[in-house]
Every structure is written in structure tokens, then in C-alpha cells.
């Protein structure tokens, strides 16, 4: 009965949904790590675009995927030397 009710109200905390959610997060990270070239080329492209507007300290630049609670975020730390005018 309890089972029927929980299905009736679309139980989103069912263990299969937890499995799906956790897999979605972990696979984003796995896939990014599996192709190390991906983050590198993204980093190069970022530098190219941002350099149009700002002078960057390329040596201190960091681009990483980080998981926070329910999502995966692309976190970029890009030191700026000067802003072009």
C-alpha cells in the first residue's frame, strides 16, 4: 500500500533517481578527465577570447571542473594584470 502511494505521488527520492543523479555528476567529471586535451584546449580558447579585453597573467591561470552539491561547475581562476581600454 505504502509502495502504491509513493508511486502515486511520483517518489523522486526513489533509489533509482538517486543512482541517476549521482551517475550524472560523476560521469561529467570522468569524461572530462578521460580526455585531458579537453580542458587544455578550453583553457587556450578562454585565454584567446579574454585577451581581447584584458591583459592576463597566464602563469597563474587555473581551469577545473568542480562538483558542488547537485551540480558540476566549471571554475576558472584567471589573474588579470590590466584591463584594456
Amino acid at each position: 500500500m505504502l509502495e502504491f502511494l509513493s508511486r502515486l505521488f511520483g517518489n523522486n527520492d526513489s533509489s533509482k533517481n538517486m543512482a541517476k543523479e549521482r551517475l550524472r555528476l560523476v560521469l561529467v567529471q570522468d569524461r572530462a578527465m578521460l580526455s585531458p586535451g579537453l580542458l587544455d584546449s578550453l583553457q587556450e580558447d578562454l585565454i584567446e577570447v579574454i585577451s581581447k579585453y584584458m591583459e592576463l597573467d597566464v602563469t597563474g591561470l587555473e581551469v577545473n571542473l568542480e562538483s558542488q552539491d547537485q551540480s558540476v561547475a566549471l571554475v576558472a581562476s584567471i589573474p588579470v594584470k590590466n584591463v584594456k581600454r
Binding site: E3, S6, R7, S14, K16, N17, R24, L27
Partner: peptide, 16 residues
């Protein structure tokens, strides 16, 4: 188990 929502089904696996 699929019916109870305790196992991923075909669509879930396809999605992922």
C-alpha cells in the same frame, strides 16, 4: 525492482 523505482530502467540507462 524497476517497478518499485529501486532499479534503473531501460530509459534511464539510455539517458545516461
Amino acid at each position: 525492482m524497476v517497478r518499485k523505482g529501486d532499479m534503473m530502467d531501460i530509459d534511464d540507462m539510455n539517458d545516461i
